[in-house]
């Protein structure tokens, strides 16, 4: 009876542990996106818990130069305006040996990797056509307005992307891992039994 009780306790304890939190821990993820001139970042532990007070360091990925540093706020967010539009490497140090990074490519700032030549042709066309009418907004202004609106419209999409970026641990992973362990036990048992058979054959 006593034993049965103990077993019940252990099972309940494990059940409580499992159900109290379906969240998984122990990896940090950082995700960054560009909105106009600014770069937003979001940092999370793999359980979905935000990284509060994590250190963020931004590097120019080409020149390896350190541009700026900051810490994440209560929601794990950190927003900055980079001094130059370049390929940025954003490093997150979440303490206790946790680290991850994210690269913002030039394209996200609306730049092509090798200079800005392709986009200028259509922009130049508009002022020529609209030259007689004074009030028509210039190509640059339209571009700016469209960019602002797009950024605003895309924000929820970016947020969604942030969430989908975080690869949750799936049951498949767990099962696969346990399968490997059992396989290794089999290998170990095989070699052990061979060793023993060799020994008994020698005698």
């Amino acid at each position: 009876m006593k034993i049965l009780h103990l077993r019940h306790w252990i099972i309940t304890l494990f059940l409580i542990l499992y159900t109290s939190s379906a969240a998984f821990a122990h990896r940090v993820d950082i995700f960054a996106w560009v909105e106009g001139d600014r770069v937003h970042t979001e940092s999370k532990f793999s359980g979905g818990k935000s990284v509060v007070g994590g250190q963020i360091i931004v590097y120019d990925d080409r020149s390896k130069e350190k541009l700026l540093e900051g810490t994440t706020d209560d929601q794990g967010g950190f927003t900055f305006t980079p001094s130059r539009k370049a390929r940025l490497r954003i490093e997150l140090l979440a303490g206790m040996g946790h680290k991850n990074e994210w690269v913002v490519k030039e394209e996200e700032f609306g730049l092509t990797p090798k200079g800005d030549s392709g986009d200028s042709a259509p922009a130049a066309l508009i002022p020529v056509e609209s030259a007689p009418i004074q009030k028509t907004p210039s190509g640059v202004e339209i571009e700016g307005a469209v960019e602002r609106i797009l950024d605003k419209k895309l924000e929820p999409v970016m947020k969604l992307l942030v969430q989908s970026q975080q690869r949750e641990t799936s049951v498949h992973d767990v099962m696969a891992g346990i399968g490997y362990i059992f396989g290794l036990v089999g290998v170990g048992a095989y070699f052990y039994s061979r060793k023993r058979n060799d020994k008994s054959a020698d005698r």
């Binding site: 542990l17 499992y18 109290s20 939190s21 969240a23 998984f24 821990a25 122990h26 532990f45 793999s46 359980g47 818990k49 509060v52 303490g95 206790m96 641990t169 767990v174």
Partner: peptide, 11 residues
């Protein structure tokens, strides 16, 4: 390692 303890500031 998958059993996350939701107490405290860190993970």
């Amino acid at each position: 390692s998958l059993i996350h303890v939701p107490i405290g500031p860190s993970s």
